[in-house]
Design a protein around this nucleic acid. Sequence first.
DNA 1: TCTGGGGTCCTAGGACCC
DNA 2: TCTGGGGTCCTAGGACCC
Length: 433
Amino acid sequence: MPTFGLVDCNNFYASCERVFQPELIERPLVVLSNNDGCVVARSQEAKDLGIPMGVPLFKIRNLVRDHGVEVRSSNYALYGDLSERVMSILADSAPRSEVYSIDECFLDLHHLAVPSLTEWCLDLRQQVRAWTGIPVSIGIGPTKTLAKLANKLAKSSPRTGGVLDLVHHPQWREPALRKVAVGDVWGIGRRWSQMLEAQNIHTAHDLSRASDGWVRKRMGIVGLRTVHELRGIACHDLDTQPDPKQTTCCSRSFGRVISEKQDLRSAVITFAERAAGKVRAANQVAGALQVFVSTDRFNKAAPQYGSAATVRFALPTSDALHIVCAASRALERVWRGGFAYRKAGVLLLDLSSAQDQPRTLFDPRPAQKDHLMQAVDAIDRRHGRGAIALGQAPKSRPPAWAMRQDMLSARFTTRWSDLVTARAKPDGQSIGE
DNA sequence: TCTGGGGTCCTAGGACCC
DNA sequence: TCTGGGGTCCTAGGACCC
């Protein structure tokens, strides 16, 4: 029987913050989205206070004040780095693995010759914890969907010790399905959850017993796969070599609204440069570009406007000069004066590998241009993103559209200046700071 | 006052072709 | 009064994920 393991970091962003700020341990802690807008991660203590996922910070101000909740801005440099460390341990542990998200990894545990898979997973948990400081839970199932479900239960019931195996304990499968709400099943989002509840389907178990025909009609082939997976029929294999990306995006909400074309332009140009950098890092080229802008959708009093424009390149490119020029032209098409803009973004579309591009007889890409971009990328790698920018990029620092990040912790692992220092106390007894 | 960013897949409908 | 069938490609929108 196929045996999938799902390793999921517990309260990942909150756990990352704690690794280098031990004063946060056992305290209610939330991490915010960009612009310090919504709660995107919570420590267990914060969950216990009833702080929901995704709630805007201003709606829980009283809770934060009354319970001394610690608040941090998102620190993706830190989370990304710790994620890589966790994932490299996991990749070494199993013959095949799939990094599914910044805090999740599927493992192929099928051919693992160990006496007890549960014991083996408990050891792996310990190892990740000891080497990175990050706590994880592990669910095991005959399908990815059941591994996800087992993981959820492993995390929520302490007596599992953080590991639940539904492959070698098939008798636990039905009770497990009965315990999980239908909306918590992997692949069942808000809309389908509402629809299913209205049909008296409340748990994963109820859903697993729905008829194929009905599911196919109401939820399409995607929903049917989920139902089959709940029954133990694997529809999704491990994706060890994820397909190269088809699109890449760089977009932001601004720290405040913007009405000047020049400010919007500076944002769009910066996003275009960053998106171009991402595409070059993946050794890809883009066939087209889209710029989108919008006003503040939450401010019902203000006049609303949103638009997007697409520009196709004559030849696929990753050259920042081409991409910025195209973004600038696209902005001319979507810009309308008299609105307060809150968000903009640049999408690069139709990505393909930089290698297998057909060359044309009149190829307008001199090799020198490639060298210029390589130099730009090298400088950015050495001195940090944005160290070098096109002449069109913003001069004001911080730019008018800058994000709010008022509670940012240090880049403990990716910046020399942010390293934690350990120092022996004068009495020589203990290590502090 | 204050509400994230970056992706994937599927489906339906229209344009167009033979 | 009567007006094909089948295919592809493209796009927009809707569902989902973290």
